[in-house]
Design a protein around this nucleic acid. Structure first.
Length: 347
RNA sequence: UGGGGCGUAGCCAAGCCGGCAAGGCAACGGGUUUUGGUCCCGUCAUUCGGAGGUUCGAAUCCUUCCGCCCCAG
C-alpha cells in the first residue's frame, strides 16, 4: 500500500518524508498549490521534486488553487463582511487538506496520506482518534477538530510524537536542507495583514462608527468594525486608566464596545456546524473546552442539539469569538468534537 | 485683571519642606504563533507653558509674561 506525503517545502513535511522512507514504506511525494503558482512557487515545487528524486520517490504537484479560493478564501472574505472572525486554517483542513487533497491523492493510486501535522492519530473503538501532539507548544489538533472522523482513515501524522526542537535537530543531524529555506514559513494566502488583504481585494466593508464602554461612556470613533476582533487589545488607540479590550461589535448600530479585562469574561458560548469525532455517549465524565488556539482547555459542560452545541464553562473565561473554533477535549487530550463559535453565553 | 485653581511626554498623572523627571494608557520595536487575537520582553520627557532671577544645584523658591478653568459679577 502506497502512502502519499504532503510536502509543503517546510521542515516538518521534509522530515516526515524521510522518516517514512526509512521505514521502507512505498511513497509518493505531493505538493499542492493553494494559490495560483508564481515563478517562485514553481521553483519551490521543483526543489521538492528534486529531493524526492534523490530518494526515488515519485512526485506530483497539484494545483488546488481554484478550490482553495472557493472553499477557503471566499468564505473567509464573506465572514468578514458579516462581522465575524474566520479561522481559515481550521476550514482548510476539512475542505482542502483532508478533503480535496485527500481525494486527489487517492486518485493518484495512494491509499494513505501522511502529513507533518503535530497531532496524533490512534485507532479507537469509534474509529480514528485525534489526539494532541506531544509538543504542547506546537500542537495542531485544535485546527483539525473540524475534520470529519472518516477523513482520518488512512491518514498518519508521523510527527505527532515529536517535538519541534527534535525535528530541527534531526534535520540538522541528517544534513537535510529545507526546500523552502529558512525564510517565511507557510505563509498562507494572507501576505501580512488581513486588513490590507481585504481592502486590496476591494471587499465592501463597514465604515466608521462610535466607540463606547459597556456602561455607555463614549470614547471616540473607530474606522470599521471589521478591523477588530473580540478580545483584541492593541490597536484601539484609546488612552484609558487601564488597557481596553474589544468586548462586542454591535452591528446594528455599527458600535465598537470596549472595556476592561474583567468585562471580557463570559459564561460560555454556542457553536454551530458541529463536527463530532467521538459520539457523545462515549465521552468521559468531565470534558474540557478550548475556544482559542493555544488556550489552556478548561472544564465545561457541553450540550448538543443537532448540529448546534452549547458550551458552559465551569469558570467564566474570555469571551469566545464568533467564527473561531471551539474544540472539546478529553483529559487525555483526545479531540471529542469541534464546532464553529456563533455566540457568547452571557450568564 | 475682584477672588481661587491649574499648566510635567500623544492622553491621564506623581513629584512641588531644591539635588541631576514615578506610574498607568496609547504608540512603536521584538519574541511566542498554521487564522484573527491574546500573552511576554523592550523603547518612549537632557526636560517639566515662556522669559528672567536666587542657588554649587530648581519641575520644585522668587519675579514677570502667556494660556486655561472655576467662583464672584
Amino acid at each position: 500500500m502506497r502512502t502519499a506525503v504532503a510536502l509543503s517545502g517546510g521542515a516538518d513535511s521534509l522530515l516526515t518524508l524521510h522518516l517514512l522512507r526509512e521505514k521502507g514504506v512505498p511513497l509518493t511525494g505531493v505538493h499542492a498549490f493553494f494559490l495560483p503558482p508564481s515563478e517562485e512557487d514553481r521553483a519551490l515545487a521543483q526543489r521538492i521534486e528534486a529531493g524526492c528524486r534523490d530518494l526515488d520517490v515519485p512526485f506530483f504537484a497539484l494545483d488546488l488553487s481554484a478550490e482553495f479560493e472557493k472553499q477557503v478564501i471566499q468564505p473567509f472574505i464573506r465572514a468578514y463582511t458579516r462581522g465575524r472572525t474566520p479561522n481559515p486554517c481550521a476550514i482548510c483542513n476539512p475542505r482542502i487538506k483532508f478533503g480535496l487533497l485527500r481525494d486527489r491523492v487517492r486518485d493518484l493510486g495512494t491509499e494513505r496520506l501522511a502529513t507533518g501535522h503535530y497531532a496524533r492519530l490512534a485507532p479507537t473503538e469509534s474509529g480514528p482518534g485525534l489526539f494532541r501532539g506531544k509538543d504542547p507548544a506546537k500542537d495542531q489538533s485544535y485546527f483539525l477538530s473540524l475534520v470529519p472522523v472518516e477523513r482520518f482513515f488512512g491518514v498518519e501524522f508521523p510527527l505527532g510524537t515529536w517535538r519541534k526542537t527534535d525535528v530541527q535537530a534531526e534535520l540538522q543531524a541528517r544534513g537535510l536542507r529545507v526546500p523552502a529555506g529558512g525564510e517565511s514559513q507557510e505563509v498562507c494566502f494572507i501576505p501580512e495583514d488581513y486588513r490590507a488583504f481585504l481592502t486590496d481585494r476591494g471587499v465592501p466593508l463597514s465604515g466608521p462608527g462610535p466607540v463606547r464602554t459597556v456602561a455607555g461612556e463614549p470614547l471616540g470613533n473607530h474606522p470599521g468594525l471589521w478591523r477588530y476582533t473580540l478580545g483584541q487589545r492593541r490597536g484601539l488607540g484609546i488612552p484609558y486608566s487601564e488597557p481596553l479590550y474589544v468586548i462586542a461589535k454591535e452591528h446594528a448600530t455599527n458600535t465598537l464596545v470596549v472595556d476592561t479585562r474583567e468585562k471580557l469574561n463570559v459564561a460560555g458560548c454556542t457553536a454551530v456546524n458541529l463536527n463530532i469525532l467521538v459520539p457523545q455517549e462515549r465521552w468521559p465524565e468531565g470534558v474540557l473546552a478550548q475556544t482559542v488556539y493555544r488556550q489552556t482547555p478548561k472544564p465545561a459542560t457541553v450540550s448538543i442539539r443537532r448540529k448546534t452545541v452549547t458550551i458552559r464553562f465551569e469558570e467564566p473565561r474570555s469571551r469566545p469569538t464568533p467564527g473561531q473554533v471551539a474544540a472539546i477535549y478529553s483529559e487525555q487530550g483526545q479531540v471529542l468534537a469541534g464546532a464553529e463559535i456563533s455566540d457568547s453565553l452571557i450568564s
